[in-house]
């Protein structure tokens, strides 16, 4: 690993329903100050894993792990208050759709400043300064003006930049981004990913980027974790993706359509083969 101080260290994490159905079936991974993509289809357990790292799972889910450490602390037994201390200060999250994640009744400045109000005691003037600086850092024009605007006046891409500003304003140690671009237009997606990736690198943070589009996120990460049906079936360096050996990773890597593939059919998953492979691995 590039960095000795592990930000996340998880061993045998299991998330299940009350009736015993396991949704995440015992996964291990650790990461330091690096950019890692967590890739999988819907239902693979990638979002549940990310939410467990934020303490955001509903009470109806059953979580257990042999080791569940964030920034060196065993956080699984944390209560809401302790989580609140951690979230927004040490750990931050960017969600899928800014339309639903931003409060429509509050202006942008207030929402970006909220983590500051909660976690630091600053004068109003310093706060405004910080907010404007942050809005500028996420590439939004005219921070002073933007502060007074409301979410409905922003486009999706701008909304996601605001979300990012909220997440980063307290200089957290790491950022979890759950499908941060899937609600955005295609043209804006790369810009937002580029921004997340460069900000994380500048600030020497850890990034866990969750996505179903392996090809798109590969450029913005150093390492890739692949999940399938609750298991971590493959992990490799992003640079190794083009010669991945696991058939699932291979298909995910090559199934995106483009102009060169016209006339041929796209590679699709052979789910039976993968099922037999994962069973072999679990044994």
């Amino acid at each position: 690993m590039t960095n000795n101080s592990s930000l996340i260290r998880i061993e045998s994490l299991k998330i299940g329903l009350e009736d015993g159905t396991e949704l995440v079936k015992g996964i291990d991974f650790s990461m330091g100050r690096e950019r890692v993509a967590l890739v999988g289809e819907s239902g693979s357990g990638k979002s549940l894993t990310a939410r467990s790292l934020m303490g955001l799972l509903p009470d109806s889910l059953h979580v257990q792990a042999d080791r569940f450490e964030l920034l060196g602390e065993a956080v699984l037994p944390y209560n809401q208050r302790q989580w609140n201390q951690l979230r927004g200060k040490q750990v931050a999250m960017v969600l899928q759709d800014p339309k639903y994640a931003l409060n429509p009744t509050q202006n942008i400045g207030r929402q970006v400043a909220e983590p500051l109000v909660l976690h630091q005691s600053l004068s109003k003037k310093v706060r405004i300064e910080k907010v404007e600086h942050m809005l500028d850092a996420v590439g939004l024009p005219n921070p002073a003006q933007l502060r007074k605007m409301y979410p409905h006046q922003l486009s999706g891409g701008m909304g996601q930049r605001v979300m990012l500003a909220i997440a980063l304003i307290n200089d957290p140690q790491f950022l979890i981004a759950d499908e941060p671009t899937s609600a955005l237009d295609h043209a804006v997606r790369d810009q937002v990913l580029e921004l997340i990736s460069s900000l994380v690198e500048e600030r020497n943070m850890g990034l866990l980027l969750i996505s179903h589009d392996l090809q798109q996120v590969a450029d913005y990460c150093e390492r890739v974790l692949v999940m399938y049906q609750g298991q971590l079936i493959d992990q490799l360096a992003a640079s190794e993706l083009s010669n991945a050996s696991h058939p699932y990773t291979k298909t995910l890597w090559s199934c995106r359509p483009n102009i060169d593939k016209r006339g041929e059919s796209l590679p699709i998953l052979d789910r039976k083969q993968i099922a037999s492979l994962t069973e072999g691995a679990a044994r």
């Binding site: 045998s12 009470d59 059953h62 979580v63 257990q64 699984l76 037994p77 209560n79």
Partner: peptide, 19 residues
Amino acid sequence: MMDSTNNLTPHTVQKKRRF
């Protein structure tokens, strides 16, 4: 991937559950 089944030692931690 590590084999997880033999790790089920007594120090397995669980999330606290409300009454």
